[in-house]
Design a protein around this nucleic acid. Sequence first.
RNA 1: GGGCCUGUAGCUCAGUAGGUGAGAGCGCACGCCUGAUAAGCGUGAGGUCGGUGGUUCGAGUCCACUCAGGCCCA
Length: 920
Amino acid sequence: MNYKKTLLMPKTNFPMRGKLPTQEPKRQEDWEDKHLYEQLTEKNANRPLFVLHDGPIYANGDIHVGHALNRILKDIIVRHRSMDGFNAPYIPGWDAHGLPIETALTKTKKIDRKKMTVAEFRQACEDYAWDQLENQREQFKRLGMIGDWENPYVTLTPEFEANQIRVFGEMAKQGHVYQGKRPVYWSPSSESALAEAEIEYHDKRSPSIYVAFTVTDGKGVLEAGDNIIIWTTTPWTIPGNLGISVHPESDYSVFRYEGKRYVVASKLYETVTEELGWQETEVLTIVKGEKLEYVVTRHPFYERDSLVMTGEHVTLDAGTGAVHTAPGHGEEDFFIGGEYGLEALSPVDDKGVFTEEAPGFEGVFYDKANKMITETLEENDALLKLEFMTHSYPHDWRTKKPVIYRATKQWFISIDNMREDLLEAVGRVNWQPKWGETRLYNMIRDRGDWCISRQRSWGVPIPVFYAEDGTAIVEDETVDHVAQLFRKHGSNIWFDWETKDLLPDGFTSSHSPGGTFTREMDIMDVWFDSGSTHEGVLAEREDARRPADLYLEGSDQYRGWFNSSLITGVAVTGDAPYKKILSHGFTMDGEGQKMSKSLGNVIDPLDVMKQMGADILRLWAGSVDFQADVRLSDDILKQVSENYRKVRNTLRFLLGNLADFDPATDRVPVHELQDMDLYMLECLNDVIERAQEGYREYVFSHAYSAIHHFCAVELSAFYMDVAKDLLYCDHVDDPRRRSLQTVMYDMLVAMTKLIAPITPHTAEETWEYIAGADTEFVQLADMPEPAVIENREELKQRWETLLAVRNDVLKALETAREEKVIGKSLEAKVTIAVTEPVYHLLLELEQPEKLFIVSQVEVQKSETVPEGHSAIVDVETATGETCARCWHVKEDVGVDAEHPELCGRCLAVVATYDLADLEA
RNA sequence: GGGCCUGUAGCUCAGUAGGUGAGAGCGCACGCCUGAUAAGCGUGAGGUCGGUGGUUCGAGUCCACUCAGGCCCA
């Protein structure tokens, strides 16, 4: 007869394969329909708050794998903390202002900015931003993220803008805000500043000139009358020249030509003299660049000094090694000039025409002035050579005309007067990894002032008014008023309303006797937007708190959000807006190289979710050491899928074998558990402790490996393999079986909870199948507590010894298999010789053959065992008949005539079943 | 060029405060099972711990340099 029907085989509808790509979206809909997030916050309402403050994502484009990594990590934290005794809200954030949106709009959509007002254009930007937000929101939800998706924070909302204005006002009040000059890309043809992204390079024909600057004070290194030679392709910037830069580490040659002395970098001496066509030159001496610092030369045609400075930016691959420096006409020039206290002289107006600050050239277009200036240089005997060359030069991407560097008035945040406070605040923050502190510290220590002006449209206006005499008005009264207006009407009014309507009623100023005012048209750097989230979100919302417990972003944000938030936070509250910074690395390809379209090694998270499922991507994120850079490739995903399968099948096996187990009635108390089951409960305790520590300390890979290792090694390869015989063959109510199931049930519940933060879809799916699960969603349950077990150490040692014996048995069985003595292990009888203490352990086992999954075991004492082994194992064919039901080879098979194929044990079990029922 | 970081088996990770032979899982190879079956089990082969040179009785673990990657600046 077929006794298979009398076996208690695993029974479950939990599918072996998850079909994640199609199942996950349904589950996500279910979460939404049943308001899982609201249920969660309600349930945790009275628990301590844990605020993970979300850094805003820029509202443009599809999410990439970096976003996915960042947000999955955050979701793991939120989900875990929510199950670990905290109220952990998640408010997703979007950065919705800024140039990329302007660019996307003008580029992809057919919008002609020139035909619309600023306010209209800004409205178009806002519409676009909301569309992008919607798209990204769906993609994040597809990742399985839990959070307040209906009420995210968005930097373009009136409340947020109002708060941002207040941050600005507070900083102004404390004297951190000032107006200064700084060179920016300027397009005379558009009469506006351009961003880097609006520049394209084309070939341009330019004059190339060598100019001599005569030394007036050689500082004991050079002689008055010596001539430092510079080279430039923009003669028109000579009126703005205030200095000459040399490299401190390079050598400079002083040489004689036709009675005059000249200076160039030694490395370029040959090329320069050749270029100038000078022969019979004579090198007189060589000076290191740093010695030339503070040498004074005379401007070639103005009555003013030109100072020699040293800078690392000076290169020796072209020119003379002495660089013409005009702080108002170049970024590097500006910075080095700043170090030496030079002003950003920029005698050019909006149209690119020289002002009276450039005597002799007033009213001349800069490009036209090139010739005049060159002639003036020649008249002053300073021009050594003129020729023309074609080179790559920045152009306005819209008008295709060349652009220039021009210093304009900008608003700055002064870092100098708050640097000490910032550095101290850095010291009070908890950093993970530890080096984050050094990194941000160095950055704050070395950073210059923060230029917050942007000559753009799509952003928060700088709330400054100007009086008739040009005085800037930044007062509490005006700033607060603007903030209130923005909160009510949005910031578009800044561009729509009359200036007087933006000022408080009856506002007057002694600087405006006529009572008229104008307003600043620059907007704020978007880093000011995101840097204000602690005010606009943490301080504003009921479900948040400042300082946040945690900020978690990619390591690029030390320069970005961590930085800007610190500055505004310290200014507004006196301290950092975060208690802890956790940072993650970047996602590289399988070889550790950065992903790029051209290399074709980019992995799209949307594809991964479509093909494998969000839980696979999440499991990847949970498995890697994210504090350094992480790798992602098809092979890595394949491996993650394999590991997922292992965990999933383990859960499935547990479910299947608990089909007849009702925890309410079938549970066995801990003190009545079989020893092996108790040991496994102890193993579960271990996993719980390790996984919990991994989650709590933000080392998810430890939680992941603890869970996976437990499934693969402890459960699948050992416990469940051994348990099958008892589960299948024993009587349903056999206490040994119920003991097993009790532990398996606890394992199932605990494991489902433990995987929930990383793979919520799979966890919730499993939860649905668990009989007696007391919450609707596992997310609403709490993390498992380790069971109370006595003599844990002793228990562990006992079983570790037994498992070591088992290893030796398995090896011996494999050898026997190779020698064709046996096939499956149940065909074997093993003789195990062990030392005294182990001998007793084995004897204490009621049925040692179960542990080794063999049919018969004989235990012997041995004085010694070979080094590295626990036992001497001999394998032979078991004696007797194979029981048709339990497949063990037994001597007592056939004792009952009615069931000649059964062993005594199976006979007893079968006797309790109504076989007729089973046949039917 | 500067600041910070990473580099242990094909892959993902462990390697405690320097000290018995460098580990795990996955993958791979070979085999078993066919009562977890597009599953399960076993055994095995894989590493000059990026490289070089030091410190030390002894270094994957400390120091210097170097190579390769990465983030942020210039």
